[in-house]
Design a protein around this nucleic acid. Sequence first.
RNA 1: GCCGAUGUAGCUCAGCUGGCAGAGCAACUGAUUCGUAAUCAGUAGGUCGGGGGUUCAAAUCCCCCCAUCGGCUCCA
Length: 576
Amino acid sequence: MDNNEKVLEIYRHSTSHIMAHAVKEIYPDVKLAIGPPTSDGFYYDFDCPKTLTEDDIPVIEEKMREIINADRPFVRKELSKSDAIELFRKIGEPYKIELLEEITDKTVSVYGEGNFVDLCRGPHLKSTGEVKAFKLLSVAGAYWRGDEHNKMLQRIYGVAFPDKDELKKYLDFIEEVKRRDHRRLGKELDLFSISDDIGAGLVMWHPRGAVIRRVIENFWTEEHQKSGYQILYTPHIAKLDLWKKTGHMDFYAENMYSPMEIEGLEYEIKPMNCPFHISIYKSRLRSYRELPLRFAELGTVYRYERSGVLHGLLRVRGFTQDDAHIFCRVDQIEEEVLRVLDFTLFVLKTFGFTDYDIYLSTRPEKYVGSLEKWERATNALKDALQNRGLNYSIDPGEGVFYGPKIDIKVKDCLGRPWQCSTIQVDFNIPERLDVTYRGTDSKDYSPIMIHRALMGSLERFFGILIEHYAGVFPLWLSPVQLSILTISERHVEYSRKMTEIFLSEGLRVDLNAENEKIGYKIREATLLKTPYMCIIGDKEMANGTVNVRKRDGGNLGEMSLEQLKTILKEEITKRR
RNA sequence: GCCGAUGUAGCUCAGCUGGCAGAGCAACUGAUUCGUAAUCAGUAGGUCGGGGGUUCAAAUCCCCCCAUCGGCUCCA
């Protein structure tokens, strides 16, 4: 953290204290929990008998302004732990006492201004008057200490900046995020829907969205074939027994749906694809000469997610993973991980993601397999990252039950991180399910399995893409690439001919021959973010040409069909 | 799942302390045949999220569900 960030942190921390003071003045019964700074702002958690709502925000803000205008100094006091406990007992702050009881230091510090005092390590601003620009954003529920077994408190989120301009910039950023929201754009651009009648978290891809998916899938399939993968299709359900054998029933049951009974046997809808790929692997004897064997599938899985966590395309209950399982020998593992890493970065780059955060997740509390194997798998991932000189951070205990993983979070053009790619090494499942290959010595060995997804799920990736591009998809992904707009009825026949020609070239074209003014048609196409428009009037008809306009308003003017075809094809090939 | 808010026409939203359900856009019909981001007029469109209750009377008040939104927890 650089110096500037530290200063901001102090600034926000002090603002959160001022907010706590304000809330305490308005609702004297409130009990204070914690109020730290965050990456953009701050929050404070309250245990308040009165339910706080959005309507309280302006009132609290007003009270904060009073405290700021009073410009009272923040005073630090050090006292013994027992004196501090006594102090917070006197003013009735049970949460502060709970925090104090866990502090091992003999002395602690408290900060105060006016008649307000709070347990705090500090440091703080010199006085309340130093706060120049802040805004409270929302109220929300939050568990005490983030544990869902604890009482739910009320949290107020706010932001604070050194001056009004910075605050305005941040508020503009929030507006930009809203403007790009994939749920809103999904409706406006008619890309997808999630219907109450079908069920929460289940996505319907509309024609325009389905086009984009198809383009992505085709790209994905081609590139996988080039990279030595074999593409599979597998069923959506399997016997419950299978999931018992794999360990999913022990370690993944809370994300799985209830089984269904078919002729006395129980079946289960799949939450993962790996057992099917393993089954194909095991369908015959495998030789060491065949390895590495790379099986890939756009596999649709269903996972139970608690209703409160569903969020547009980014968190759903049914989704298609761009999944693959690589079976290889121990001596091939580093090379395979490297290949996957390179492949992943290439695919992400194609969609305009060049910036990412990489995490290495280690063994979780619930796991299968020996410690030694975990160690070995974890090192394989670490070595690959280091080999490529990629910076990463360690996420302790965040691995999957069968092995450690590398997660790649891409950053979109607003700098927001999104979890997509995951690469998981698995020493455990092949052994558990008796997956083997015949070695040079004619004995059987367990292969290593690498599970990986590049985009993660097509649904989530699509949601991220919509926001990344703000709905303005590059030409190769655009649902409609070219809209042909007639000026009047006598241009329809010629326009229809043009449409046929472009369609036969494999371009996605539509014809707007409605009885509307040209301005209206341009507006419609622009709102749908169609990359290119052809305006067809008397002149074009007479010259056998088209008149081209781009969605950003740029006018390319009159040109021949051939010229336009060349422009479009080149842009499509470049995938920009 | 938990805390809070919201749910009214295809979409965006009005509808106050209970008293005949509204607007703009879209759709449809007609007129207009038009040169780079909205032509004009008319028509139609609603079990007010679902179920129960209070009341002479419920979009409005109460209860229970469902979904969405902001978070928490959890995750591709």
